[in-house]
Amino acid sequence: MSNQTSFGQKLKTYLRHPGSFVLLLLVLLGAVLTFTVLIFLIAYILLKGIPYIRPSLFSLTYTSENASLMPALINTVIMTLLALIIAVPLGIFAAIFLVEYAKRGNRFIDVIRLTTETLSGIPSIVYGLFGLLFFVNALDWGFSLLAGAFTLAIMILPLIMRTTEEALKSVPDSYREGSFGLGAGKLRTVFRIVLPSAVPGILAGVILAVGRIVGETAALMYTAGTVAKVPSSVMGSGRTLAVHMYDLAGEGLYMDQAYATAVVLLVLVVGINTLSSVIARKLTKA
């Protein structure tokens, strides 16, 4: 680096241009503010919440004396699995169609792109309202894990479609040409050659979707309901961890447990997101 300036030179420049110096300070201030807020939020929740994490919080049943988060945690796992089972195949197949089969410039592709973008901008409460009107009432499933899972599946569909699309696009065309050259058909090429090379990218997207499911509240309150038990079947109502957290904080009776639940939720979501970015980084390295 030959054009490196010394500290003294920099200082001189800034003294000559006080306006620039003010801008520099503002930029630094903005950045410091952003990261201080983040660190403060995480530190506050962790420091206040960790002392309240007790074994009783993980007992299998929820009672009015012991606001256990275990049933909600189990519901969250079930809900996540259900939503993924519905959304992942759909999202991957849709992305395969868009990347591998659709012809460029097709008007219908534009319609699919536009609706996918629209879906990703819709706030979760509108999904919740739709889930209530369609799955709970029109299909008469009642408040149930299944209704919640379908609502969430629609919500994460655009995310899975987009990440899969990007992963498929990053597979070099030479792979496909090689496969065709060896006499494989289109379908075989897609499933045996293209998809396996795109797996890390798809996985990163799926894990990101898990993070969204775990943190979701507004879309679930009026679809999966707020019962604090593990239902006997997927047609029963049950609250996930985020809904549990909202109820605890809203009631105001279980603030200690609310702090502890916030820690569990935060750690879960942060862990999930980190896992996703680690996988995505592995991908860019390879």
Partner: peptide, 30 residues
């Protein structure tokens, strides 16, 4: 073989239509 190719292409196409269907349903029901 050609038959499975056709069917799967149809399956992919239907999957791609889900988002259109979802937006349509959301609009209609709301």
């Amino acid at each position: 073989k050609a038959w499975t190719e056709r069917v799967m292409q149809g399956v992919f196409f239907i999957a791609a239509c889900t988002s259109v269907l979802a937006v349509a349903l959301i609009c209609i029901f709301l």
